[in-house]
């Protein structure tokens, strides 16, 4: 079993990822990539290529028919994945296959709640852990509704990531920090996923406010990040960053484009 070649799993693997990046004085890079785009094999090849570029971790996208937090790029890609017959089971197969191919980085399953509910929360947490996933990110699950999922994740040692946004009050920052395990996904702006030309001007101030109320839970920034220039600004500010729509656009052009973009974002200093 390839999983045995990983010394840590679940929350421990996520913690080790941040520890390593911190020791290297940089923010961890966690690309998002949806299973099944443009095809199932393509998505595995893209993730494997990024792993070889030493990215720090992955958000493994599971498709949903109604992705209301996503912009046009991810909407179109996950729609294509659905047309390719991608299911929750198939996404777990993909993780298992990636572990078998030697991918060692933390992988967090990212998908909307309904397909996970339909699969069964306990069963999903169990099977995700068994497949080699380390955590779970559900954009339409705020902490107030998170208890049922949190219990299943705790049983399996999986991280359960919650979100913070520019609209979150200081009280909510503290609430989310108490409930999030693994890290907090910080949404950089009010809006949906998608590449933007510029990071928001208030970013530094916003992150400092979160840091003041979030204790030492790692903060990972996402939404709108697509270029090495943007990534450079994030070292020393946040513990990690995510690029999603940009990876998907590269994925449409092929594995080489994904590899190039992953390399440039990982090495931007």
């Amino acid at each position: 079993m390839s999983q045995m070649t990983r010394t840590e799993t679940g929350l421990d693997a996520i913690a080790a990822m941040f520890a390593r990046a911190k020791a290297e004085n940089r923010a961890a890079f966690l690309p998002y990539y949806p299973i099944g785009f443009p095809g199932y094999d393509d998505s595995l090849a893209a993730i494997e290529a990024m792993a070889a570029e030493d990215v720090d971790g992955f958000e493994i996208g599971m498709p949903f028919s109604d992705p209301l937090a996503d912009g046009p790029t991810v909407q179109a890609a996950t729609q294509k994945a659905l047309e390719n017959g991608i299911t929750v089971s198939r996404c777990l197969d993909a993780v298992r296959e990636l572990r078998a191919r030697g991918v060692r980085q933390p992988m967090l399953m990212m998908g909307y709640l309904n397909p996970i509910l339909s699969y069964g929360i306990d069963r999903f947490a169990h099977d995700a852990h068994a497949a080699g996933a380390d955590g779970l990110i559900i954009p339409d699950l705020p902490p107030e509704e998170g208890a049922i999922v949190a219990a299943a994740c705790a049983r399996e040692g999986l991280g359960l990531v919650f979100f913070l946004a520019p609209t979150s009050s200081d009280e909510r920052v503290a609430l989310v920090a108490r409930q999030a395990t693994g890290f907090i996904y910080v949404v950089s702006l009010t809006g949906v996923t998608g590449a933007r030309d510029h990071l928001p001007e208030y970013l530094t101030q916003f992150i400092h406010r979160l840091r003041a109320h979030a204790g030492d839970v790692p903060l990972v920034l996402g939404f709108g990040i697509s270029t090495p220039e943007q990534a450079q600004r994030l070292h020393g500010l946040v513990d990690g960053f995510i690029a999603g729509s940009a990876m998907v656009k590269a994925g449409a052009a092929g594995t080489d484009a994904v590899r190039e973009l992953a390399r440039s974002l990982r090495r931007a200093r």
Binding site: L68, P139, D140, S168, V187, T190, G191
Partner: peptide, 20 residues
């Protein structure tokens, strides 16, 4: 208070909207 009618209802939306 959490918007439930028995086991139905609630608030399953992205964090950005919760304060709103």
């Amino acid at each position: 208070e959490r918007g439930y009618f028995g086991e139905f209802g609630g608030r399953f939306v992205p964090e950005t909207l919760i304060p709103a």
